[in-house]
Design a protein around this nucleic acid. Structure first.
Lengths: 187, 187, 187, 187
DNA sequence: TATGAATGAGCATTCATTCAT
DNA sequence: AATGAATGAATGCTCATTCAT
């Protein structure tokens, strides 16, 4: 599990990323993180003032990872409609790879009803970046449309987000397939 | 807070229902439940073998409450399309009333990545009942349709579920409004 | 597990006998006893004022059971020396049958350093009855002896009791075999 | 009660040693240990992963204490037979000093019918060290013997162990005196 | 006789965090 | 930059016992 040549900070963040996502934020204790990261407890608190701050970094890292994966899927795909479809296929792969872990931002919100400002801001930022992706694609689409750009993009984002969550619940890809069907109805 | 004339069991379940939903399942301790319910700890464990069993009853109760609210909204509404729209309006009211607490089943799943069979079964059962509502309405709709009943119903369910979650994340009703717009595009 | 046609009292005592011996007195809860006995909690407290009183009855029952087994082994054995040897063989069978559970009286004493008078009296009574058996046999032995009756009997009793305990510790019969060798040296 | 200049770990172990032996392992709660040791609960779990691990250390400590006492009794005693007799006298003093608490290893076994591997190994190790003492003395004894070394040593060990237990049961030294008489018959 | 319901006190263990070095 | 040691508060759960019916 331990990855060599990683700074203490990276080792902690990497471990937290894995455990928070696999086990849940509240169900993952600081002790387990430091144990599996192979660092001292005070080292964690040196690099991350609190568990909550570690959580914010975790959210950033998850977006980075998702973003990287998506870019790989979209390389060489120009057509906006095709890019949207590919993003759904990318999500399917992501869900299978993570054993249907779902969306980390959504899950953090679900775990912390009284979320702090820091957490809230990071989650909203990540979600908005995902939404903007769809906005951009729709904008690039040619041809006459009967509905506003944002309405269409928001609808697709709802399907994308809802399907991610339902795939997690059902532990199966069928909701994502249904979502893609709906997207094709709408486009 | 204490509601008179309630059996100890009801008092516990009522309190757990409130706290699990307001604070989250993992962040709500047994101690707080019994304190606010005004009962002894052993009384809780007499009626509910474990916190997990209490959780299952909580999920059942939430479905009952939602179902009751929905039936009130749908009384005197015959047209299937209208009933679907009303169900989204009902959801909006539910979300506002609960301060955008979101879907309890979704949240439980998010909180317990290694969910037990009992919890899983109850969540799936509740979700499926919600999905079946849309299936039934679409089936009752007259007129020629170009897409299959289940495809349309699943799309609407995805929008309903996704919007519920996004409203929770954004603490705002706009995702539900966007979802309703999309539903109207599809219908 | 449930034995039909047993009075509630007998059902409880039978279950307690099994559980106290298999799991230990302190590690066996009232709840488990009533559950496995299939009776209500208040029923137990109707028949036995306290767990401690149930313990006293348990000790009596264990002596009765041992005594019955021993009498079966000694039937048709007249020679005192032979009877002593047979009693060690009987003990071996008892230990194997109980998966090396050891002596219940000894164990109760070990579990309750601040034993009550009731428990203490019952344990001492049972131990003394075992000791008296050896006294009686030695008395019946013919021939000249160089040591006093009680000294010889007490030595044999020490070997019998010590071996019972060591068999429990080692989960093996070799201490009992060693004890029998020593007895033969002494006789 | 509190002993100054002792590390937290030592303070805990010292207190556990006293309480486990005086009150029994199962009847001694972690709470009482930390209270009387004057340390925080988490400190105990920092030094000892579990109550069971604390128990293993307790067993080690008891052997060390007994061993120290025995060595003091045997200093300047060369004759093997005399050393055996002295070890019984040492045991008598030990029993009086501990208010007839008996053998801690035996008691732990009696308290935990489903003993763990860790506990079992430690108990067996301690018991075997005691047995080896008698083996060594018998080996050193001169003169012709009619019985094997191990048979004689095991007999003495059974008397030593059985008497320790019976002294605990009867809360009196007479079983140890009887055991010594028997030893003299055998030697 | 028998029982379902209720309880206060206690259980072993883990929590996130801090501090002196 | 890193750590070993310490902590108060909370975790889910079980204990033997009692009482009204």
């Amino acid at each position: 599990m331990l990855i060599a040549d990683l700074s203490v900070r990276e080792q902690i963040l990497e471990t937290a990323n894995r455990l928070f996502y696999e086990q849940g934020y509240n169900l993952t204790g600081i002790n387990q993180i430091i144990e599996e990261a192979g660092v001292a407890k005070a080292s964690l608190y040196y690099h991350f003032p609190s568990k909550e701050d570690l959580c914010v970094e975790y959210l950033k890292k998850r977006y980075k990872n998702w973003s990287t994966l998506l870019q790989r899927f979209l390389a060489n795909v120009e057509d906006p409609k095709e890019r949207i479809i590919k993003s759904f296929e990318c999500r399917s792969k992501y869900l299978v790879d993570t054993h249907f872990g779902g969306c980390s931002y959504t899950r953090i919100i679900a775990e912390m009803p009284q979320r702090s400002v820091k957490i809230n801001d990071q989650v909203i930022a990540n979600k908005e970046k995902q939404r903007m992706f769809f906005i951009e694609q729709i904008k690039k689409m040619k041809g006459t449309r009967t509905v506003a750009v944002s309405d269409l993009a928001n609808a697709i984002f709802l399907l994308f987000d809802g399907a991610t969550m339902q795939c997690q619940v059902y532990r199966d890809l069928h909701p994502m397939k249904n979502a893609l069907k709906a997207v094709k109805m709408l486009l």
